[in-house]
């Protein structure tokens, strides 16, 4: 590897560690100009930064905002490289496709949004439908993108029952176990997840990534 290239990859990793989307995008553009294969830019540059900050976070050294900012810087860099990948007929290997939504009647989404950021940063392709999403919308989108996973959040005991409705609907249409279901939210317990026959639950975004990897058989 040339010194120049090595320096570029190091800067890419650092831009993720610094959580600086402006710089990560700038470096992504520079790599295209230099003719660096976009997959190399991702795996040898940006991903190194994501892994580092993930390890730091796991060790209690990095804080959540740093993890989220790293995730966003990663997302921005990958989005910049995406057209180039398509042009070359290449695809970044993805961990899996995920549809995320907060269930119908519920507008609380910070946890779900965080899960989305973390999943994207970990190599999942994420479609976040936002809040107040009825079952047919969630399932429709999952079919449209050929999703491996559906992740649903709910903050209220009155709305968490909607998670069960989506799962029952998926079962009725014979879409499981092809599509796996993760549920989450403050009132969600392991007992609840088992009771409604979800495939798993996690109490935080980092745990949700681990769970997602398990469910798609990548861990």
């Amino acid at each position: 590897m040339s010194d120049e290239l090595e320096k570029l990859f190091k800067e890419m990793a650092q831009s993720i560690i610094d959580g600086d989307s402006d710089i990560s995008v700038e470096l992504a553009k520079k790599s295209i100009e230099m003719g660096v294969p976009p997959l190399d830019a991702i795996t040898k540059g940006f991903v190194v930064g994501v892994n580092y900050i993930g390890d730091q976070f796991g060790a209690g050294e990095a804080f959540l905002p740093e993890l989220v900012m790293a995730g966003e810087a990663m997302k921005a860099a990958v989005a910049t490289l995406e057209p180039e990948l398509i042009k070359l007929g290449e695809a970044r290997e993805i961990m899996g496709r995920v549809v995320l939504a907060t269930v119908e009647g519920d507008i609380h989404e910070i946890g779900k949004t965080l899960v989305g950021t973390m999943l994207s940063a970990s190599g999942f392709e994420v479609v976040d439908l936002g809040v107040d999403q009825p079952a047919d919308k969630i399932i429709g989108k999952a079919l449209e993108i050929n999703a491996d996973l559906i992740g649903m959040s709910a903050l209220l005991t009155t709305t968490m029952v909607r998670q069960r409705e989506v799962i029952e609907e998926l079962d009725k249409e014979g879409l499981r176990p092809r599509i796996k279901v993760m549920v989450g939210g403050a009132p969600i317990t392991r007992d609840w997840a088992t009771k409604i026959k979800a495939d798993g639950t996690s109490e935080d975004a980092v745990g949700a990534v681990q769970l997602a990897k398990q469910l798609v058989g990548k861990e």
Partner: peptide, 16 residues
Amino acid sequence: PGGHFLAQKHTRNHMR
């Protein structure tokens, strides 16, 4: 309105 403060530079400057 909505969203979160986790990705703000201000947050990074003051989280500690």
